[in-house]
Design a protein around this nucleic acid. Sequence first.
DNA 1: GCCGTTTTCGGCCCGACTGTTTTCAGTCG
Length: 587
Amino acid sequence: MTNAEISKLFRHVAAAYAVKDEKKHYFQIVAYQRAADIIEASPAEMRDLFKEGKLQTVPGIGPSIKTHLEELITTGKVKHFDQVMNAVPQAMFPLLDIPSFGPKKAFKLVTIFHLQNQESVIEDIEKLALDNKIAQLEGFGEKSQNDILQAISEYKTGTTKSARMVLPFAAELADQMITYMKLCAKVNTIYPLGSLRRMVATIGDVDLAVASGDPKAVIEHFTAYPNKERVIEQGPATASILMSGGKHVDLMVQPPDRFGSLLQHFTGSKQHNIHLREVALKKNLSLSEYGIKEKGSEEKGKFDTEEKFYRALGMVWIPPEIREDTGEIELALKNNLPNLVELEDIQGDFHIHSNFAIEPSHDLGRNTIEEMVQKALKLKYTSIGFSEHNPSVSKHSSKETYDLVAQRNEALEKVQQKFKKIKIFKLMETDILANGKIGLDEKSLSILDATIVSIHSSFGMSKNEMTKRVIAGLSHPKAKILAHPTGRLLNQRPGYELDWDILFPFCKEHNKALEINAFPARLDLPDSLVRKAVEYGIKFFINTDSHAAAHMDLMRFGVSVARRGWATKHDILNAMEYNKLEQWFKQ
DNA sequence: GCCGTTTTCGGCCCGACTGTTTTCAGTCG
């Protein structure tokens, strides 16, 4: 049972409670929805946490839900859930997947029309709407009948709720909209907010906030966007449009003197905001996008900046990347937040593929060594590490491999002679083969400063085997960095499994670094694991894995992952002076 | 059902928008 399945089941339980008696079960409903949100977003599978006895460490999971989860994971079902859900018609549940269908509407329709078949219920509702049977019901009308048809049609064609976007894709969509919105003279300021501002690895919808003295004009301009599918909703302060591909763009507008509270509200996360508002309540304050009001008063205090907004709650400003309600509010109250690493701290990039013809088993870069160095200089780096893939093991003798590595080194030295302002490190990205050996022999390794190691084959191994394999590879004294540690490709493959409780202590003890791969389809190590590794005291390289000079600009995405993992400058090795780094490689 | 340096009992974020309604329920974020 996956997190997604558990989350869906919890939402169904909440829906069943809502139908049964919403008032009586209100806080159970909220609790199950909150647990569903948290489990859905959790990078760790609940079944793994169960095996490790760590279910109670998940926020939102208390004694009762924990017991139910244990029953669910061991037996595949929960008696209590069955009881709750069997009290309502089963046919209502498939309808909940369709946007605009909640528990009440789904229950009402399947009850009135005696629908019992879960397989056909969506088609059944569609047919009833087409036959004009729904418009006559109390509480429904012509418009809502048409809305139902539209929602079902969009659901069936996959127009809605499609896969989440990787960051640059969402950023580009946001940029397009921002460019368009700036054509409206009434737009003072506009920012992308929500998960895009928090730099979450994948983005659902694009959220935009505008400061303007004329919200009406701004909203009208927004909903007139020519490349939209349709307007979803439109009010005096907010609007939402559907884009081709099923993405929503949500807009909120406030006057400039309330823009700080809008930024705070719309950046989220939801759990961060809820917690912040609970903290505020204890101070007799109530928060919203309009500002802060004292309990009992109608007057809402105005905040033009986020800093002032947080200060009014007795805390320091919290960087958006860590607004996930994982302890940041408590530390902000004590003015004790970590000093997160910044892009400007980065002094070099150590996972760089040039087009040097090294005859690798994987891909070559597109630019020359010199072009990559020039790009590094433009980025004001003081060091760079070249790490082409090792020459393919199957196609070369040991001597041929050595000659290729030596030739690559000579090429690096030539460029080093020409550019004295930057230190060039001689690295390589070496495969950890299925048997745990690495794809270079001692002689070749001896002429490198160090090697990055990584997995590019035999992904299907068990967690145990893979952990042993990675540790075997990392055990060579020259193997200093584990690249893209989980092997995940966002929206493509989940990555292999590793036992972090073994790997993290190993890295700490043997002074091995983990890579935070900045390539947007990877963002690997994932942020939540970065956080754990930081707690272990492990060091990182943030690398772009560039296969072209232009890729080196992607560093900021890796820095965001590090920030989301609460890493400071001192956790990041490529934020160090190169001479210190040279020492580190020799350790 | 969860949660706790003001609580192990008694609280639980706050608001937008829509359609069908003459004041609100439902859905969403």
